[in-house]
Amino acid sequence: MYLQIGQETIYLLLTGGLFASLMLTLYVASLRGPTEQPPIVTLSEADGYTFPTGSAEIGPAFARALRTAAAPRLRELSDRYEAPIIEVIGHTDEMPLSGRMRGDLDAALIPWLSGARTREPVSSDNVGLGMARAVAVARALREAGLDDRYTIIPLSAGPLVKPGDVVTDGASAADERRRRRIELRLRRPAAEAR
Protein backbone atom coordinates (compact mmCIF):
# COMPACT_ATOMS: atom_id res chain seq x y z
CA MET A 1 0.00 0.00 0.00
CA TYR A 2 2.79 2.46 0.79
CA LEU A 3 4.46 1.71 -2.55
CA GLN A 4 1.30 2.59 -4.48
CA ILE A 5 0.94 5.95 -2.68
CA GLY A 6 4.61 6.65 -3.48
CA GLN A 7 4.03 6.07 -7.21
CA GLU A 8 1.04 8.41 -7.27
CA THR A 9 3.09 11.04 -5.46
CA ILE A 10 5.91 10.64 -7.99
CA TYR A 11 3.46 11.02 -10.91
CA LEU A 12 1.97 14.08 -9.30
CA LEU A 13 5.42 15.61 -8.76
CA LEU A 14 6.46 14.84 -12.36
CA THR A 15 3.26 16.42 -13.72
CA GLY A 16 3.78 19.49 -11.54
CA GLY A 17 7.41 19.78 -12.66
CA LEU A 18 6.43 19.50 -16.31
CA PHE A 19 3.77 22.18 -15.85
CA ALA A 20 6.25 24.48 -14.04
CA SER A 21 8.82 23.95 -16.83
CA LEU A 22 6.25 24.83 -19.50
CA MET A 23 5.20 27.99 -17.61
CA LEU A 24 8.84 29.05 -17.17
CA THR A 25 9.50 28.54 -20.89
CA LEU A 26 6.48 30.69 -21.80
CA TYR A 27 7.56 33.39 -19.34
CA VAL A 28 11.11 33.53 -20.71
CA ALA A 29 9.77 33.68 -24.28
CA SER A 30 7.54 36.63 -23.33
CA LEU A 31 10.57 38.54 -22.01
CA ARG A 32 12.28 38.38 -25.39
CA GLY A 33 9.51 40.30 -27.15
CA PRO A 34 8.28 39.60 -30.66
CA THR A 35 10.32 37.22 -32.78
CA GLU A 36 8.61 37.90 -36.11
CA GLN A 37 10.55 40.19 -38.45
CA PRO A 38 9.00 43.52 -39.46
CA PRO A 39 8.11 43.94 -43.14
CA ILE A 40 10.36 45.94 -45.45
CA VAL A 41 8.87 49.25 -46.58
CA THR A 42 9.93 49.95 -50.17
CA LEU A 43 9.81 53.40 -51.75
CA SER A 44 10.34 52.59 -55.42
CA GLU A 45 10.77 55.00 -58.28
CA ALA A 46 8.31 52.77 -60.15
CA ASP A 47 5.73 53.68 -57.47
CA GLY A 48 6.32 57.42 -57.76
CA TYR A 49 9.10 57.94 -55.20
CA THR A 50 11.40 59.66 -57.66
CA PHE A 51 14.62 61.60 -57.43
CA PRO A 52 15.88 63.71 -60.33
CA THR A 53 18.32 61.71 -62.47
CA GLY A 54 21.67 61.36 -60.70
CA SER A 55 20.47 63.44 -57.75
CA ALA A 56 19.50 62.98 -54.10
CA GLU A 57 17.12 65.94 -54.06
CA ILE A 58 13.73 65.14 -52.54
CA GLY A 59 10.92 66.98 -54.29
CA PRO A 60 7.77 68.29 -52.61
CA ALA A 61 5.58 65.27 -53.51
CA PHE A 62 8.21 62.82 -52.24
CA ALA A 63 8.65 64.81 -49.00
CA ARG A 64 4.87 64.89 -48.50
CA ALA A 65 4.65 61.10 -49.00
CA LEU A 66 7.43 60.59 -46.46
CA ARG A 67 5.64 62.84 -43.95
CA THR A 68 2.09 61.56 -44.46
CA ALA A 69 2.60 57.89 -45.29
CA ALA A 70 6.11 56.54 -44.63
CA ALA A 71 6.83 58.14 -41.23
CA PRO A 72 3.46 57.13 -39.67
CA ARG A 73 3.85 53.59 -41.08
CA LEU A 74 7.38 53.32 -39.63
CA ARG A 75 6.14 54.50 -36.20
CA GLU A 76 3.35 51.92 -36.26
CA LEU A 77 5.66 49.07 -37.34
CA SER A 78 8.34 50.11 -34.84
CA ASP A 79 5.83 49.96 -31.99
CA ARG A 80 4.28 46.67 -33.14
CA TYR A 81 7.60 44.87 -33.61
CA GLU A 82 9.58 46.67 -30.87
CA ALA A 83 12.10 47.63 -33.57
CA PRO A 84 13.33 51.21 -33.09
CA ILE A 85 16.24 50.98 -35.55
CA ILE A 86 15.39 52.07 -39.09
CA GLU A 87 17.87 51.24 -41.82
CA VAL A 88 17.40 53.48 -44.86
CA ILE A 89 19.03 51.68 -47.80
CA GLY A 90 19.60 53.48 -51.10
CA HIS A 91 19.50 51.31 -54.23
CA THR A 92 20.29 52.31 -57.80
CA ASP A 93 20.27 50.56 -61.15
CA GLU A 94 23.51 49.65 -62.94
CA MET A 95 23.55 52.60 -65.33
CA PRO A 96 26.84 54.44 -64.70
CA LEU A 97 26.59 58.11 -63.77
CA SER A 98 27.79 60.23 -66.64
CA GLY A 99 29.51 63.59 -66.67
CA ARG A 100 30.13 63.56 -62.93
CA MET A 101 32.77 65.60 -61.29
CA ARG A 102 34.64 64.53 -58.23
CA GLY A 103 32.22 63.74 -55.40
CA ASP A 104 32.29 65.31 -51.94
CA LEU A 105 30.44 62.66 -49.92
CA ASP A 106 33.24 62.02 -47.42
CA ALA A 107 33.13 65.61 -46.21
CA ALA A 108 29.46 66.38 -46.88
CA LEU A 109 27.29 63.47 -45.70
CA ILE A 110 27.46 63.93 -41.92
CA PRO A 111 26.76 67.69 -41.95
CA TRP A 112 23.96 67.16 -44.48
CA LEU A 113 22.35 64.42 -42.38
CA SER A 114 22.44 66.61 -39.27
CA GLY A 115 20.86 69.51 -41.14
CA ALA A 116 23.94 71.74 -40.94
CA ARG A 117 24.42 71.76 -44.70
CA THR A 118 21.69 72.72 -47.15
CA ARG A 119 23.31 71.89 -50.49
CA GLU A 120 22.97 68.33 -51.70
CA PRO A 121 26.28 66.40 -51.68
CA VAL A 122 27.73 65.38 -55.04
CA SER A 123 28.25 61.68 -55.73
CA SER A 124 30.48 60.36 -58.47
CA ASP A 125 29.15 56.80 -58.68
CA ASN A 126 26.04 54.71 -57.99
CA VAL A 127 27.18 53.55 -54.54
CA GLY A 128 27.66 57.18 -53.54
CA LEU A 129 24.34 58.14 -55.14
CA GLY A 130 22.58 55.38 -53.16
CA MET A 131 24.19 56.71 -49.97
CA ALA A 132 23.32 60.34 -50.72
CA ARG A 133 19.70 59.34 -51.38
CA ALA A 134 19.58 57.29 -48.16
CA VAL A 135 20.91 60.28 -46.21
CA ALA A 136 18.33 62.56 -47.88
CA VAL A 137 15.50 60.23 -46.87
CA ALA A 138 16.90 59.77 -43.34
CA ARG A 139 17.04 63.55 -42.93
CA ALA A 140 13.49 63.93 -44.31
CA LEU A 141 12.20 61.25 -41.90
CA ARG A 142 13.70 63.20 -38.99
CA GLU A 143 12.01 66.34 -40.29
CA ALA A 144 8.76 64.34 -40.61
CA GLY A 145 8.78 63.70 -36.87
CA LEU A 146 10.74 60.51 -36.29
CA ASP A 147 12.46 61.74 -33.13
CA ASP A 148 15.36 60.41 -31.06
CA ARG A 149 13.40 57.33 -29.99
CA TYR A 150 14.38 56.00 -33.42
CA THR A 151 17.88 55.29 -34.61
CA ILE A 152 17.97 56.04 -38.34
CA ILE A 153 20.92 54.52 -40.18
CA PRO A 154 21.51 55.46 -43.84
CA LEU A 155 23.18 52.78 -45.97
CA SER A 156 23.86 52.17 -49.66
CA ALA A 157 23.60 49.01 -51.69
CA GLY A 158 24.24 50.94 -54.89
CA PRO A 159 23.47 48.75 -57.89
CA LEU A 160 24.33 45.46 -56.16
CA VAL A 161 20.95 44.23 -54.89
CA LYS A 162 17.89 43.73 -57.05
CA PRO A 163 14.39 43.72 -55.52
CA GLY A 164 13.81 40.53 -53.57
CA ASP A 165 17.33 40.56 -52.10
CA VAL A 166 18.87 39.10 -55.26
CA VAL A 167 22.51 40.06 -55.78
CA THR A 168 23.05 41.18 -59.37
CA ASP A 169 25.33 39.34 -61.75
CA GLY A 170 26.18 42.60 -63.53
CA ALA A 171 24.48 41.60 -66.76
CA SER A 172 21.65 44.13 -66.59
CA ALA A 173 23.14 47.61 -66.90
CA ALA A 174 19.81 49.02 -68.01
CA ASP A 175 17.61 51.90 -66.94
CA GLU A 176 15.36 50.05 -64.45
CA ARG A 177 12.93 52.15 -62.41
CA ARG A 178 11.98 49.30 -60.07
CA ARG A 179 15.62 48.92 -59.00
CA ARG A 180 15.95 52.60 -58.10
CA ARG A 181 14.43 52.56 -54.65
CA ILE A 182 14.81 53.23 -50.96
CA GLU A 183 14.19 50.31 -48.63
CA LEU A 184 13.26 51.00 -45.03
CA ARG A 185 14.12 48.03 -42.83
CA LEU A 186 13.26 47.99 -39.15
CA ARG A 187 15.18 45.94 -36.65
CA ARG A 188 15.67 45.49 -32.95
CA PRO A 189 18.85 46.48 -31.10
CA ALA A 190 21.46 43.75 -30.75
CA ALA A 191 21.08 41.81 -27.50
CA GLU A 192 24.36 43.10 -26.07
CA ALA A 193 23.28 46.72 -26.70
CA ARG A 194 20.09 46.41 -24.65
Rank of each mutant, 00 (worst) to 15 (best):
A61D: 15
G90Y: 01
D125I: 07
E82Q: 13
G103C: 06
A193W: 06
E183G: 07
L13H: 12
L184N: 01
Y150E: 01
R80Y: 09
E176S: 08
T168L: 07
P111G: 11
P84E: 01
A116G: 14
E143L: 14
Q7F: 14
A108W: 02
Y2R: 15
T25Q: 10
L160A: 12
E143S: 13
L97C: 09
A83Q: 01
R180N: 10
L14W: 13
R188T: 01
Y27K: 12
P72N: 01
Q7V: 11
P84K: 02
P84Y: 08
N126R: 15
E120A: 13
E8C: 15
R102P: 00
L13C: 10
A71P: 01
I5P: 07
A116N: 11
T92P: 01
P111Y: 08
I10P: 08
S98P: 04
V122G: 05
A144N: 00
Y11D: 15
G59Q: 00
L129W: 04
A132F: 06
I182Y: 00
A191I: 11
A134S: 12
L14G: 05
T68V: 07
T25N: 11
P38T: 07
M101L: 13
I86L: 15
T118W: 14
V127F: 14
A46E: 03
Y27E: 12
R102T: 13
D147R: 09
G170P: 00
L77P: 01
P159Y: 12
V28I: 14
S78N: 03
Y49R: 02
D104C: 06
R100Q: 11
G128A: 12
G170M: 04
L18F: 15
E176M: 12
L12M: 15
I86Y: 07
D148M: 10
D79T: 09
L105Y: 03
P163G: 01
D169W: 10
P34G: 11
I10N: 13
I89P: 00
P121F: 05
A191V: 12
L31T: 08
R75G: 06
V167S: 11
E94T: 04
D147W: 05
R102M: 14
A174W: 09
A171M: 13
F19S: 15
G59D: 02
M101N: 14
F62N: 00
S44T: 06
R194N: 05
A20E: 09
S156N: 07
R194L: 14
L146M: 02
G164H: 04
G103D: 03
T35I: 08
D79K: 10
P72W: 09
R133S: 03
G103T: 03
P60G: 13
A190I: 06
P52L: 03
E82S: 13
A108M: 10
Q7C: 11
R75F: 02
I110W: 10
A138I: 00
I152T: 01
V135T: 04
R139G: 00
E176F: 08
E87W: 10
V166I: 12
L12F: 15
A69I: 07
Q37N: 10
V137D: 04
A69E: 14
T50A: 14
I58R: 08
L160Y: 09
P34S: 11
L113S: 08
R178S: 13
D169H: 08
E143C: 02
L31S: 12
Y49K: 02
T53A: 15
A140F: 06
I152W: 02
R180V: 07
F19I: 15
L160M: 11
I10M: 14
L66S: 00
R177L: 15
Y49W: 07
L105I: 05
L77I: 05
I182A: 05
P52E: 05
